[in-house]
Amino acid sequence: MKKILLLTDFSKNSINAMNYGLQLFQNEYCDFFVLNVQSSLSYATDDLMASRPRESLYEVLIAENKQRLTSIVEGLKLNANERLHRFKSIVDYDLFIDAIKQTIKKENIDFVVMGTNGASNLREAIMGSNALKVLRFINCNTLVIPEGYQYKKPKRFLLALDVDDYADHKTVFDITELIQKLDANINVVRIVSTNENVQSKIQLDKDLLLELIHENKFTYRTVSNIPLSHILVDEELAQDAHIITLVGQFKGLFNRLFSDASKTNISKNMILPLMIFHH
């Protein structure tokens, strides 16, 4: 049973991302926790004035969001597998990252699913900022869906390994398990530096892949001296993949992927869903 956290700010983009997650895990037993966070810093004087004497501030601030979230969950159920999928809606009045961390811990979440987009208006700017916060501060496997990206059953994954990444057994097992359930293939791209002896690293990668997946189900190649972030926005590097997959230690991965120079470009130009596995 997978436990998946779906994040929503009620935008079309977040709803699209949630529906993508439902379809990706269409044939797996899943508990979906649909979370909307009402920031504890965002209430206004009008909210206080509108409250009745016996209502708490908390109740006033989340009442409308509870109604909206209930409506969204009912819509999600139309695209869900009734036999395999269950839903729980959560409205939390808290700081955004704190609310996510608490839910992950309480519900033993396996995956976080959310959308990201270019900042063309204030709401989208906030959502884009929140997506980066999740990738920076949340140590949980995460699936990020670009703005407007419509679900198509993934037939090919791209696993990008940076110069210092190592593919541990559990993480690669989790990736190949999903690939096999989808009857998909995987292209592995290992980034190398020109001044290193890469043969032993390549052999370790291939040995692990062959242990977990048939040799006809993956390809392997190396590329030299490019930033990891380029793979997210370069159609030629992505080849014909439907999902880009990254692995790595939590904090180190974010620092390499979202440097100040690259994070704006990534948030506006990410071309494929991004699935990040932490180890």
Rank of each mutant, 00 (worst) to 15 (best):
L24A: 12
L57T: 14
K181T: 08
T194N: 10
Y43A: 15
A125D: 05
F250M: 07
F137L: 14
L135Y: 09
N79P: 07
Q249H: 07
L237P: 09
I179S: 15
I244K: 03
V192T: 05
K12S: 10
I72M: 12
A80L: 02
T8S: 01
K2G: 01
N225I: 00
T176V: 06
K170C: 02
R221Q: 05
A119P: 04
M49F: 10
I62D: 02
R256Y: 00
T70Q: 14
R123H: 15
T45A: 15
G148W: 07
K268G: 04
L41C: 13
E215D: 08
L182Y: 01
E211S: 12
V60P: 00
I243M: 13
H169I: 01
K12F: 10
N216W: 02
Y93N: 10
E64W: 13
L253F: 06
H242S: 15
V134K: 01
Y20T: 08
C140E: 08
E211H: 10
N81G: 06
F25L: 06
L35D: 12
S224K: 08
N216S: 09
T116R: 03
F33A: 13
L78S: 08
F254I: 11
E147G: 02
I213N: 03
L272H: 05
D234Q: 02
Q249S: 12
N65F: 12
N117C: 07
I175N: 00
L208R: 03
F25E: 00
K217S: 05
T8Q: 02
I186Q: 04
Y166P: 05
D234L: 00
Q203G: 11
R221S: 12
K155M: 12
L209A: 03
F258E: 08
S40R: 11
L122S: 09
F250W: 04
I213F: 02
I191H: 06
E215C: 01
M18F: 14
R156S: 10
F96H: 05
C140H: 07
L84W: 03
V223F: 07
K88Y: 11
T245Y: 07
L69F: 09
L272D: 00
L209V: 07
V60D: 02
D47S: 14
T142S: 14
G252Y: 07
A119C: 04
P273T: 00
R256W: 00
N121M: 07
I179Q: 10
E64G: 05
N195I: 13
D46S: 15
V192S: 00
G148F: 09
M49C: 11
L159G: 07
I276Q: 06
T171N: 05
N216T: 09
F87D: 07
L246K: 01
R123N: 08
E147L: 06
S42H: 11
N225D: 12
